[in-house]
């Protein structure tokens, strides 16, 4: 299968949907000629023109608000926010308006809006441009929240998001934009709310999403090669709706669960996953506590060396896996 980057996969998804449906359009800061902050929409303005690839003023409230309004009145807008941290500025538009309309208007309005927003650290962009805030949005009924971790998922899930009649917050992974992966040339979609098991294993369920997936897959492979430990790597891909069943049945099988995400552990979405697992039929099969590895309880530092250390690292995840495998009742 051909390999393209995560950013190219997203561009393909947008372009395909825009070709198929005139209601679909993209707007955001510098998405036109400049191609967006990370070059995701590079070249799209040439194909679709500035009517459908619209540069917007520096106001996230205005951008998201326009998106909500356009969606409520019949269009299918894709809105790009340069850094997901800036979602805070458009929070009222998104959370109080966009997420509520369909419900409060008794189904008379739908909001088929996609808000694309890159998240995560690792680019030296410091504390205001490096957060992972997906858990906030997962808390809002009326929103869907996707966190794709591979080019294939990014393309398929974005197409589903564009076709969805509900607002979807689509958290792209800054550090994955340049990462290549196999993506089918034929048209396909990936449903929102369906987890993916990247690697089968019976010893421990490593539940992760977004940027942490490649790291977790590396560790799983290492442990298998070096020690014959088989870690099952499960990516929920969408955190709202959450594919509880796949997570639960994996943990029921392995008896051990480690949840890894880049977001700060405290209040992070891993807590929700842990709670879902604890309050499930997997509970009596647990052979160890459910553990989380997430970001440290600090803003992302500007210093590049510190920046690397405040989020889960290869070493910290690997030793958490080994510790959890060692955990036993009665000891």
């Amino acid at each position: 299968m051909r390999e393209i980057t995560y950013a190219e996969a997203i561009r393909e998804a947008m372009s395909e949907e825009m070709r198929q449906n005139d209601d679909v359009f993209l707007m955001g800061e510098d998405v036109g000629v400049y191609g967006g902050a990370f070059g995701v929409s590079l070249g799209m303005v040439d194909e679709f023109g500035s009517e459908r690839v619209r540069d917007m003023p520096i106001s996230e409230a205005a951008i998201i608000g326009s998106g909500v309004g356009a969606a409520a009145t019949g269009m299918r807008p894709i809105v790009e926010i340069q850094f997901s941290d800036f979602l805070t500025i458009g929070m009222d538009q998104l959370v109080n308006q966009g997420a509520k309309m369909r419900y409060m208007f008794g189904g008379n309005a739908t909001v088929p809006l996609v808000v694309r927003a890159p998240e995560g650290s690792g680019t030296g962009a410091a504390a205001q441009h490096s957060q992972s805030l997906e858990a906030w949005f997962a808390h809002i009924p009326g929103l869907k929240v996707a966190v794709p971790s591979t080019p294939e998922d990014a393309k398929g899930m974005l197409k589903s998001a564009i076709r969805d009649d509900n607002p979807v917050v689509f958290f792209e992974q800054k550090l994955l934009y340049r990462k290549k992966g196999p993506v089918p040339e034929k048209e396909y979609t990936i449903p929102l709310g369906k987890a993916r098991i990247h690697r089968d294993g019976g010893d421990l369920s490593l539940i992760t999403y977004g940027r942490m997936l490649p790291l977790c897959l590396d560790i799983a492979k290492e442990l298998s090669d070096e020690h014959g430990i088989e870690v099952e790597v499960v990516d929920p891909r969408t955190i709202r709706p959450l594919d509880r069943e796949t997570l639960i049945s994996s943990v029921k099988k392995t008896g051990r669960a480690l949840i890894v995400h880049e977001a700060v552990t405290m209040g992070g979405f891993g807590g929700e996953i842990a709670a879902v697992l604890a309050d499930s039929e997997a509970f009596p099969y647990l052979d160890a506590p459910i553990r989380r590895v997430g970001g440290l309880d600090v803003p992302i530092p500007y210093c590049p060396e510190l920046e690397k250390q405040v989020v889960p690292t290869h070493d910290s995840v690997r030793s958490a896996v080994l510790e959890l495998l060692d955990w036993e009742y009665g000891s």
């Binding site: 009596p284 099969y285 009742y329």
Partner: peptide
């Protein structure tokens, strides 16, 4: 509980702890 994973006995943590001790 249906679909019991092979050879696994569903038990509460307290039960497992007591049995292990």
């Amino acid at each position: 509980i249906s679909k019991q994973p092979e050879g696994k006995i569903p038990a509460s943590p307290a039960a497992k702890q007591r049995a292990a001790v």
